[in-house]
Nucleic acid binder design. Sequence first.
DNA 1: TTTAGTAATGGTAAACGAAACAAAAACACA
DNA 2: TGTGTTTTTGTTTCGTTTACCATTACTAAA
Lengths: 226, 226
Amino acid sequence: MVNETKTHEITVDVVILTIKNNALQVLLVKRTNEPFKDKWAIPGGYVRLSENLDDAALRILKEKTAVDNIYLEQLYTFGDPLRHPDGRVITCAYFALVRSEDMKIVPTAELGWHKVIDLPPLAFDHKEIIQYSLKRTRERLEICPVAYQLLPEKFTLTEMQKAYELIMQKKLDKRNFRKKALSTDGLVELEEYTKSSSKRPARLYTFERIELNSKRAHFIKKGDKK
Amino acid sequence: MVNETKTHEITVDVVILTIKNNALQVLLVKRTNEPFKDKWAIPGGYVRLSENLDDAALRILKEKTAVDNIYLEQLYTFGDPLRHPDGRVITCAYFALVRSEDMKIVPTAELGWHKVIDLPPLAFDHKEIIQYSLKRTRERLEICPVAYQLLPEKFTLTEMQKAYELIMQKKLDKRNFRKKALSTDGLVELEEYTKSSSKRPARLYTFERIELNSKRAHFIKKGDKK
DNA sequence: TTTAGTAATGGTAAACGAAACAAAAACACA
DNA sequence: TGTGTTTTTGTTTCGTTTACCATTACTAAA
């Protein structure tokens, strides 16, 4: 029997995804300390003793983004003994889908958005975590229209299709997409149109911000409503 | 800022599912110590410092069942601060699908199979964990034929259908099921038949025990092959 | 007002998959 | 030989997804 008395550290890391500049992007922070000093990492932190994991993820999310009422789901727990060079740190990873318009983030040298298709060198196993969050997002998108979590309050069907294409990483047929989109629950047609410059205006749509039902309690967590 | 210096305990709990006596059953152990003394619980244990989470789950599985090469998948990490009355214990839950014929378990007063539709009072949040493992198993079954993990080496299509019905909790059409089953990759038709007593013999099938591909690395883990 | 350009919009045929449904074949036993 | 029980097999229908273009609606510039 090996030494079983020492305890482990446990952290929560949050992959925060958004659509920005026509690309799927992830929020990264630059590490200021060793290990992996000056490498980019996904935001994270230690779990407080009195705090459940969802709340820890929400706290970290809020510290970085100051947003509320977002899509947040537990992703996977990564526990390789060698994932942290300084000791045993198990991390429970979450991922969040946010609207970039809601964010008040000013990109600095230590915090910023990075396109998921062109990631810088990352600390720890964070690259793997991000890749897995993308896979999970695709799986979710096939089941429910989570993409609206990434879209502005009001959007055109073309914008929505663009979001799908960015996540699914493939082109979709315009008419088929429109047909399916129009039949999804919660999508409401507005009496407003885009005022674009030199082309035909597009109708705007929005999504009913309904309370996500309890059947999905294990993988959907809406933000705390204070 | 609250007290952040103390650490957490982390355990791994494994929901072990099988089909036995025409029912979906889960392996439970009776607790001998407080808290929840004499209540049933799913097998679990502390994660060793040098051990990754998958290996911890495999170790616990092996301690209880002495089986190898089984379907094992990380389920969810439960971290409510109040889930353990004695302190902060975060558990990373796994679930496993095993063939009851492979098991050498002799049910005792402290270890035994229990039908998932008729569970005794359980310790901690273990009821919730089991319920979630059933939900996840159903989700997996809709994607890939994991049910064969629960079946004997050789089985009839009727047995396979029975397994599906037990997991999905609904009756399936015999001919439609057969059609879909026959088209699944990996199912091989044998030149053997059941030697039953007084009815038409049924053809036997088996499943190619192929290495599960790496695309599913995050949710499928085959047992260690020594 | 005309024209050109760009994007939104509406429909249909083919392919595919899901659901419903009945009859014949094989064996054991009486 | 007949009866009972279970396995085995195929077709039709229906709805949904996929593939595929042409027309319309609007803006800006000529």
